[in-house]
């Protein structure tokens, strides 16, 4: 009795080892069986990523900077942001990080596109059904809180080291905010406006595309912004499994105590993050121009 209270009634060492072996063994079998198939499934994504990356690398740097500045202008209509973008990228190039930055840029853009492409439809489905919301919410919680190193293990076992697993790892981490905020945004749409749409005989599609999604845009946009930020914050971890880009020199710096190298590359990531954040927020705000005027609707 006394022993029961002082020592936790844990599994015996043998049973525990068997349990772990059982799980590992099964997953290894699964990997052997389906690993190749899953890898081929991810091939198109990998090719797309490599294509974006090669386009960015092959384009002369002044053109890349002009295009980036042009995008910043189109999205924000703010000269300060455009000048800041140009300055940041010129400095990055001058400090010898141009190629790594382009690789990271490709990774983050593709990951963000995938997250938007999957996340928004999922968020819409989730907003339609309370049951689906009850199922997906805890999954998103796990995706956001589980230490990324934990899911790197099965990802690497399945897909090996390279671009595809890195992309997958980034997406797993970055997709929850866009799903959550799409769901939230659609659920927050004014019930009266929806009722009005119903009263005029709007079909489900008409309601979704003319009312719910447009009115949820501020929240959806906050989700896109968060997704970009989280994708950037995964760059170093992604480098660990072959994502390359700005994360690789950071890892090298950690291993060798190269302070300046780590700092430069870290600051480059920060600079990209700030530019993306400001530009996407400014764009989100511009979408909401119709709210100006003082008489709330």
């Amino acid at each position: 009795m006394e022993q029961l209270l002082t020592e936790f009634p844990e599994l015996s060492r043998g049973a525990l080892r068997d349990l772990r072996r059982y799980i590992d063994g099964n997953f290894k079998d699964f990997t052997r069986e389906y690993g190749e198939l899953i890898e081929t499934m991810f091939d198109p994504l990998k090719w797309f990523l490599l294509w974006v990356q090669s386009v960015l690398l092959a384009t002369p740097w002044p053109i890349v900077i002009i295009v980036l500045c042009g995008l910043a202008w189109l999205a924000s209509r703010n000269w300060k942001l455009v000048v800041g973008t140009a300055a940041a990228f010129l400095l990055i190039g001058w400090l010898g990080m141009w190629e790594d930055t382009m690789v990271t840029l490709a990774m983050v853009s593709v990951a963000t596109l995938i997250c938007i492409g999957l996340g928004i439809p999922f968020g819409i489905l989730m907003a339609r059904s309370d049951r689906l919301q009850a199922i997906i919410t805890p999954i998103l919680d796990v995706m956001q809180t589980i230490p990324s190193f934990v899911y790197l293990i099965p990802v690497v076992m399945l897909l090996g080291i390279g671009k595809a697993p890195a992309l997958l790892a980034v997406c797993i981490y970055a997709i929850p905010p866009i799903v959550r905020l799409t769901n939230l945004g659609i659920r927050l749409v004014d019930r009266e406006v929806l009722e009005a749409a119903d009263s005029f005989g709007a079909s489900y599609r008409q309601k979704l595309f003319n009312v719910q999604v447009p009115l949820a845009l501020p929240n959806i946009f906050a989700g896109v912004n968060q997704t970009i930020m989280m994708a950037l914050s995964m760059v170093v971890v992604a480098a660990l499994i072959g994502g390359s880009g700005l994360g690789t020199p950071v890892l090298r710096a950690v291993n060798n105590q190269y302070l300046a190298l780590g700092l430069f590359n870290g600051m480059a990531i920060v600079a990209i993050a700030i530019i993306f954040d400001r530009v996407s927020q400014a764009y989100g705000k511009r979408l909401q121009k119709h709210r100006e005027g003082g008489h709330g609707v």
């Binding site: 004014d190 406006v193 009005a196 003319n210 009312v211 447009p214 845009l217 609707v297």
Partner: peptide, 8 residues
């Protein structure tokens, strides 16, 4: 409460 579409 009017229920107009604010973005239109």
């Amino acid at each position: 409460k009017f229920a107009l579409l604010p973005h239109r």
